[in-house]
Design a binder for these strands. Structure first.
Length: 232
DNA sequence: ATTCCGTGAACGCTCACATG
DNA sequence: CATGTGAGCGTTCACGGAAT
């Protein structure tokens, strides 16, 4: 996935959930939209080098969007809209072997009365529902999800188990937007219930796929799969 | 049949306020 | 005083109805 030209700056402070104060390299201080609703644990330290994109869309309150942060010698993609776009692109390119025999990809597909999953693949042997999660947290070579207790994420795992019970494929796909990790685990120290649900889900047939993306100022690309460690 | 536009849901944290 | 509930934060995207 190609990135638009990005501006470099230093993070002054994440002001609140959707906003960050940044000093661009030309000295201008801006407020940028922060397209990440998570806690961004380890990715929002004041003083970090960051990259922002610039939007010309009329009516937009803040022109700049925070896209990446430099952490531990690598770029980390923090825009939570990226995983959906990137995985969509990767699915269409048939670059993920587990999903290469489907003919149709639909996005934002309703499930039940109150849920929506990111992708539904059809045209293969079994319909396949995929829920994508963005992973920005990593410590000592291990990527972790979630970075905050997530009620909604827990619901998605229950939905996926139900989907499998109905005879479909149910997939939770974690996109790790940083290259300084070799493994993936649920963040039991943050959300033990999520960790429990993830291993229960796998026992009940939900597939866990972990993609790792090379994040550079020019592009974000899925480069490999990581082996998840789900059990205790 | 196609494009345009308004509406609403989603994201998850934080803070104000209400309830016990 | 402790705990719980709800609104609000900015943007994108899908959707449905209206206009072309």
């Amino acid at each position: 996935m190609k990135m638009p030209p990005l501006l470099s700056g230093i993070l002054i402070k994440r002001i609140k959930r959707f906003l960050a104060e940044i000093r661009l390299d030309d000295g201008e201080e801006i407020i940028a939209h922060c397209p990440n609703s998570g806690s961004m644990l380890g990715c929002d330290s004041p003083g970090s080098r960051v990259l922002v994109s610039v939007s010309e869309r009329p009516g937009r309150r803040y022109r700049h969007t925070w896209e990446m942060v430099r952490v531990n010698g690598v770029w980390v993609g923090i825009n939570t809209l990226v995983p959906n776009r990137l995985i969509h692109e990767t699915l269409l390119q048939r670059r993920l072997a587990a999903f290469s025999d489907y003919t149709t990809v639909r996005r934002e597909v309703p499930w039940g009365a109150h849920s929506r999953l990111d992708f539904l693949l059809s045209g293969g042997r079994r319909s396949c529902y995929i829920e994508v999660k963005n992973v920005t947290l990593a410590q000592a070579g291990v990527a972790y999800f979630p970075d905050a207790v997530t009620e909604r994420g827990q619901k998605h795992l229950r939905d996926l188990q139900e989907i499998v019970r109905h005879g479909h494929r149910g997939v939770i796909l974690f996109l790790v937007q940083r290259m300084d990790a070799e493994r993936f685990m649920p963040a039991r120290f943050i959300d033990p219930e999520y960790a429990r649900l993830l291993s229960e889900s796998r026992e009940n047939g939900v597939e866990i796929v972990v993609c790792q993306a090379l994040v550079t100022p020019e592009e974000i690309t899925v480069v490999k799969l990581l082996e998840p460690t789900v059990s205790v």
